[in-house]
């Protein structure tokens, strides 16, 4: 597998606060890497550096052998806050179709691709509706469909399931696993330890701020996963405990 993304000694400070320090990470094509860490450890900043939305104050991010200086061409982001990320004046289908303008496709093709992506996430029937007419989970499906239709080389997800209920969360995790099976490279930022293990091929653990990769663990789970049996496997139980300890920083248990 060839290398798609290299994060080299990336550090970022703003307003006297150091969010990231000496972050190193490599992602191969087709991999799904979870980035997990305590809240405020700079996970979202790292993701914004990769997306080209923020220029890191140190180090560099290389995508497809080219250093990222501006927003790269073949990348999509799914944010946690779907209701703010979708455009309320456009129908669901048009929301999905908007980024496809970047590919210079004619309108009919954009619409067809959007409808197809909506079908893929199980929202074919909602194409004509508006985002605010849908439930939170459905809205997040729309923003996932928008990213999928774009067919990016790299898909970034920033706490994508942080604002949906538990059942929807599981459904969406499985949706991501299904997408990964289609050969897309995904970087998923989360603070949820179980989730990082369940969807990941690898889990990169960030320390408390300033964030730094303190562990890079391969996930030895079968590619076929499901919410019940996978979570029962000894490897899952072992890994989530290991990641959990790392995220808590090996600190002594908090007295209650």
């Amino acid at each position: 597998m060839s290398l798609l993304l290299q994060i080299e000694k990336v550090g970022h400070s703003y307003a006297g606060h150091t969010a990231l320090e000496d972050v190193n990470l490599e992602v191969a094509e087709g991999e799904l890497v979870s980035i997990v860490g305590p809240s405020g450890c700079g996970k979202s900043t790292l993701l914004r550096c990769i997306a080209g939305l923020v220029r890191p104050s140190q180090g560099r991010v290389v995508l497809n052998d080219a250093e990222i200086e501006d927003v790269p061409d073949n990348l999509a982001v799914v944010f946690q806050d779907y209701s703010r990320s979708l455009l309320p004046w456009l129908s669901v289908r048009d929301n999905v179709a908007v980024p496809l303008r970047r590919h210079g496709k004619p309108k009919a093709e954009r619409r067809a691709a959007a409808s197809e992506a909506l079908e893929a996430v199980g929202l074919g029937a909602a194409a004509q509706k508006y985002p605010w007419q849908l439930s939170g989970g459905m809205q997040q499906r729309v923003s996932i469909a928008r990213a999928l239709a774009y067919k990016p080389a790299l898909l970034l997800m920033d706490e994508p399931f942080g604002s949906v209920d538990a059942q929807t969360r599981e459904d969406l995790e499985d949706l991501v696993l299904q997408v990964r099976g289609e050969g897309m490279t995904i970087l998923l930022v989360t603070h949820d330890i179980d989730e990082s293990v369940y969807v990941g091929d690898r889990v990169a653990v960030l320390s408390r701020a300033p964030g730094k990769v303190i562990a890079d663990l391969p996930v030895g789970l079968p590619a076929e996963r499901d919410q019940i049996t996978t979570r029962e496997l000894p490897e899952f139980v072992r890994l989530r405990a290991e990641v959990g300890r790392l995220v808590r920083g090996g600190s002594a248990p908090v007295a209650s």
């Binding site: 997306a51 080209g52 939305l53 927003v71 790269p72 061409d73 990348l75 999509a76 982001v77 944010f79 806050d81 703010r84 990320s85 979708l86 455009l87 908007v98 980024p99 970047r102 774009y150 970034l156």
Partner: peptide, 12 residues
């Protein structure tokens, strides 16, 4: 700002 950022991330 998030709506703007989303479209910027798509390269607009």
């Amino acid at each position: 700002p998030l709506a703007k950022e989303t479209l910027r991330a798509f390269g607009f």
